[in-house]
Design a protein around this nucleic acid. Structure first.
Lengths: 365, 365
DNA sequence: TTGAAAGCGATACCAG
DNA sequence: CTGGTATCGCTTTCAA
């Protein structure tokens, strides 16, 4: 009489529920739940009956009912600026990989601002939405703006997440203070910039243009600071006329470099705030008939794969983006056990200068 | 006595529930639900009391409880090959944008195969997982392999999704047949390839190398077919020695082009299966001292933004990737109303050849 | 080893 | 316009 699949309204089959399975197997729902979760002893024979029923009915558990009852969602959230930017997409890839490894799905959202909303506010709201979804962790990626109010709001979110057993992971962004319950995955921007600048200085450069990076963004500040410290360390006074912050995109690199080329500002090397900016700058330079590195040296930051596809291949600082993504979910999911409490609330991945072809000694050294 | 936020075990605050809000505002949960969803008349005064309580308690609804009760999740799923590949990441961006517009979150997963699992199987499993999550729609992106068994399994998934009121969207992949409940967002691969090849032929090329694309993938087949049809239309016999399928990555383009350069195969133009392959091929060509387009012409497909950052700027076929992403969620969410049933179960976005700098007449025409 | 039943936190129907 | 309450599908004591 009844067809195999239970039918609901409007001729749509409704999904079989755990009750259907229980009935079909002649056991209780509790038993079904147990064999499905395998966290409780069940007689072999019973188990098999249940499994059969499951297969026959093509039953799959309702993730929401499960989340509601067990308050665990097998989901991690990640919030980036732009999924198309390689910096972010490689991190997303890492997160997605590791999430899959732990049998979780990945909520991805972009807070790029626009239409009257600042990317900061969007970010906060997205965290809230992911908390509503009870994501097991929420990973926010990329530099943060230096703003006390913002920091406070973010700290609130961190606490709100902690309250429901989730956790906020800061990936590539500074801590909110020891009292705020977050985990961190960082890399040394200041140090990398220092090393990279040193490399330039060692080649004989003294007037180095700093190009790009949103002003006020932690990433920019740190890189700029490393640049300045390296200069100072070699007795070169950093001058403001050589610092041109702005943005992180290739477009910015291209247009600003082009503008700068029309001025009589002089420098023998360009430190681009990231590889994308470097790519744009390279294009502007090349278009203007300036050879890299013969006429001007150029370096980037991040070491996205595209950077060795440029001609000349770009000298840059390697940042293990995918690894950071993976580490973010690992650290988030790693519930501290009795043994090593606070084992790792923070991991710092290593970076290093990758010397390729875009740097040479200055022409008139 | 009681602190504001209800406390649960282990000193963690638990989230306020709708009951808390109701109690706080002195109304019933039903009323709270009504003001929150704004889908039912509520007295102004009552509404305000509730809203106050909500604010005071920092209440946010539990998305799972809501999903369970209302069976609607405000979530769309998208399954791609690789989040780092621009083809996919631009589509993801479009999906994410449109999802946000409809106040939905986005589940992103990658089925890139590996570790013994084929990307096809992974794709199927991911669809299942997203169905467990009751995603309002599941969008699978990119070409499909020509395999009857696979098609049947995919059709099963489509039905399973339809059964729970969700929908499978095929984005850039061929239909599963009229009887299968899916929506489609397509673009004309065959026609684009035809036009592009014609462009080459019009410039005087007759021996055109076809490079890249996984054999058996619908995308590859369609582009190849367009290429052949164009040749035939101009009375040129397509020959197999000029067809070199393989993969879609830049790496493939580079290495295979390089290998081909060592043979004595002759051709005056290269039709790369996509822009990434073209970028790789360009690099190999350039490295070998061959000028594009003076010595050899080169075209790509997709028109990812990088393609006009190449030197020479790449002539290619424009595919509106972001738009496809947006359209995918629009078409998925567009419940057909009484008026125009089956209004749009399928949309085909337009493509066109973008002539830039990488094509010139052959040297010895 | 298994079952009964009490939640989990919302929605929506049915009265009032 | 508002309140009571059954219900969604699963997990998890508590007993047997």
């Amino acid at each position: 009489m009844n067809s195999d699949a239970p039918r609901g309204k409007a001729g749509t089959t409704r999904m079989p529920t755990i009750d259907d399975v229980a009935a079909h197997a002649g056991v209780s729902t509790a038993t079904v739940s147990r064999v499905l979760n395998g966290n409780y002893p069940v007689a072999k024979h019973t188990r098999e009956k249940v499994l059969e029923a499951v297969a026959e009915l093509r039953y799959t558990a309702n993730a929401h009912a499960r989340a509601l009852a067990a308050s665990a969602t097998r989901t991690v959230g990640i919030i980036v600026n732009d999924v198309v930017d390689p910096f972010f997409s490689y991190i997303v890839r890492g997160v997605e990989q590791e999430a899959t490894l732990s049998d979780r799905l990945c909520l991805v959202a972009a807070a790029r601002g626009g239409s009257g909303r600042s990317s900061r506010d969007e970010e906060l709201e997205l965290i809230d939405r992911m908390r509503e979804q009870r994501a097991d962790a929420v990973i926010v990626v990329g530099g943060a703006y230096d703003d006390e109010g913002l920091r406070r709001k973010m700290a609130d979110r961190a606490r709100a997440l902690a309250d429901v057993g989730s956790v906020l992971v800061l990936c590539g962004r500074p801590s909110l203070g020891d009292s705020v319950p977050t985990k961190m995955v960082g890399y040394d921007n200041e140090g990398g910039a220092f090393a990279l600048t040193e490399h330039l200085i060692a080649q004989g450069h003294r007037r180095i243009l700093y190009l790009g990076g949103p002003p006020g963004l932690s990433t920019t500040s740190a890189r700029l600071q490393g640049y300045r410290r390296a200069l100072l360390a070699r007795g070169i006074a950093p001058t403001d006329d050589l610092v041109h912050e702005g943005a992180f995109g290739r477009h910015f690199g291209y247009t600003r470099m082009r503008e700068l080329l029309q001025t009589n500002l002089s420098y023998t090397a360009v430190f681009a705030a990231n590889d994308l900016v470097a790519a744009g700058a390279l294009e502007a330079l090349t278009d203007a008939g300036i050879r890299v590195p013969e006429d001007i040296s150029l370096v980037g930051y991040d070491d996205i794969p595209q950077s060795f596809e440029l001609r000349p291949k770009l000298t840059t600082v390697h940042v293990p983006l995918e690894e950071m993504g993976r580490e973010s979910v690992r650290i988030a999911l790693h519930r501290e056990d009795a043994f090593d409490r606070q084992s790792a609330n923070e991991v710092v991945v290593g970076t290093h200068v990758v010397v390729r072809e875009s740097v040479a000694p200055p022409r008139e050294a």
